[in-house]
Amino acid sequence: MRRRVLAVLMCIVCFVVIIASNKVPTSDDLPIATYITKNAFAETGASNAVTATYLFYRYYDTLFEALMLLFSIIAVIYMSIHEGDKYDE
């Protein structure tokens, strides 16, 4: 019980501190977003700027995310092997 009260107190204190210190305004000029929304259709031909972003400007992100999905599937298959299953190799 005491541990839970301590955890609640810690979380509330951290929340209040972060909310109170969140006063610095973010900058209004977004250079990457402005460049992409201006030039995405001219450079890639795709009118959806999000697709142009994750397939052209940030394509390593998509590539290694697909690789990570494959790794997680390998982990799921490897960790759920029980002995004596007839569906295994």
Partner: peptide, 10 residues
């Protein structure tokens, strides 16, 4: 300016 085929294939 004409990367549509690459994007559709990907």
């Amino acid at each position: 300016g004409s990367l549509i085929f690459y994007i559709i294939l990907a």
